[in-house]
Design a protein around this nucleic acid. Structure first.
Lengths: 223, 223
DNA sequence: TGTTACTTGTGAAGCATTTCACATAACAGA
DNA sequence: TCTGTTATGTGAAATGCTTCACAAGTAACA
């Protein structure tokens, strides 16, 4: 038996489905901008190169949002998906490591647009500490734990060298942060209850080189 | 119907397997640096948080690389995986869009390390054209098609705004390039035979926010 | 109100991936 | 050479995901 919070569906949603919700959200944002009132699963599927059945099945995990014979109301479905993904609100994000990747991410508009607000920056380089990036003053990563707590950060993005990533993660976890997006090419350990995602940009190029040397279009279940 | 070159195994390898090969490669690089001679599927699995059976099954698609009772020879397995992934050679890569993300990628060491050499840069901003980034002079993206052909580029990385991404892609395809890694939040059309991967960094944050608002560890088949 | 056209929502079927479990093989030590 | 231990490689089972196919619901229009 397991104790679940009220309202917890206990239904496990696959990562693939969540990834596609993210795609639907983007497509719906576009449709909304072009003043479409409704959209069918067929059209949504076409826009994201999926099947209509896939779209309907994905959405059906979370409820009935459509009208038979008509389709889905664009604006409402967009809001519902935003609520499911948790992007119908603002998240306070800190970024550790203001190097090449790090400073690019500070300016990355797509994060903003989806409610991920980078409000703190950390680095261990004395030359960077105190400097200003897009209106945010870089803090000393020695004070990471303390300042993360104080500022109520909920998500941390890691853009530090692989060699130090684990130490930073340990501090981040100590500060009570439960979500980490890691850009370092490293395998990080986190305790249960902490969500960790790895962004592995080299891996994407490897998919391409694999496809090229094997002269095949490998199966592409997600995204 | 599809024309396959001689030697094509015709065995479809799943994207998940390829993603894991990439992880094995990274783990093996580390083990090699630490002078390990052999590694078991159990150890490799532990390092990448997978199951031993998964590791063995993945490798078995490509041959028998191990010795019963002993495990896999670290150095050799690493080389074999590199060959499978197509990273046992250099790839000539061009990057279009020398903005925030673009210039960060030019300096991204992990690409280099895996044989992806960025040798051309393009932008449409007059202030950037002619400037020098890490020893590469930025070309005018008006000359994209011509210069891609001349310089024998095999992979293009797109780091341009979503609004212009499709136009760039069309030129890239015209130039005969068959592999594209796209960072723009856009759904790009490419003809059959062109490999396109999308790097969607906001999506990774959405996995995290979904997990947080749904208070669950969703299933994580890959990476 | 009846008819036609359309599209959802969903069990069930089909397909793909992961895990199991064990026969087989190699090494180490006596 | 024999015995114990370890670990691979792989069919088969289990699990998970996608697609099919259709009942049911809605709109539009006569």
């Amino acid at each position: 038996m397991s104790i679940s919070p009220a309202g917890d569906t206990d239904k496990r949603i696959s990562e693939s489905t969540i990834g596609r919700l993210s795609l639907y959200y983007r497509a719906l944002s576009l449709l909304e901008k072009e003043n479409y009132e409704t959209v069918s699963s067929k059209e949504l599927a076409r826009l994201e190169k999926l099947t209509p059945a896939q779209v309907r099945k994905d959405l059906s995990f979370f409820g009935s949002f459509g009208t038979r014979g008509l389709g889905y109301p664009v604006r409402e479905l967009k809001e519902r998906i935003a609520a499911i993904l948790g992007i119908n609100r603002q998240w306070r994000v800190a970024l550790v490591g203001v190097g090449n990747i790090g400073s690019a991410l500070v300016s990355y508009k797509e994060f903003q647009r989806q409610g991920f607000q980078i409000v703190k920056l950390f680095d261990n380089d004395q030359r960077k500490i105190g400097s200003n990036h897009k209106g945010i003053v870089v803090s000393d990563s020695k004070k990471l734990e303390e300042e993360l707590r104080e500022s109520g950060i909920e998500i941390v993005i890691l853009a530090v060298p692989a060699t130090v990533a684990q130490y930073i993660v340990d501090d981040v976890v100590k500060a009570g942060v439960t979500s980490i997006l890691n850009f370092a090419p490293a395998n990080l350990r986190v305790p249960d209850g902490v969500y960790l995602r790895n962004e592995n940009m080299a891996m994407e190029l490897e998919y391409l080189s694999f496809a090229m040397v094997n002269n095949q279009r490998h199966k592409r279940p997600r995204q």
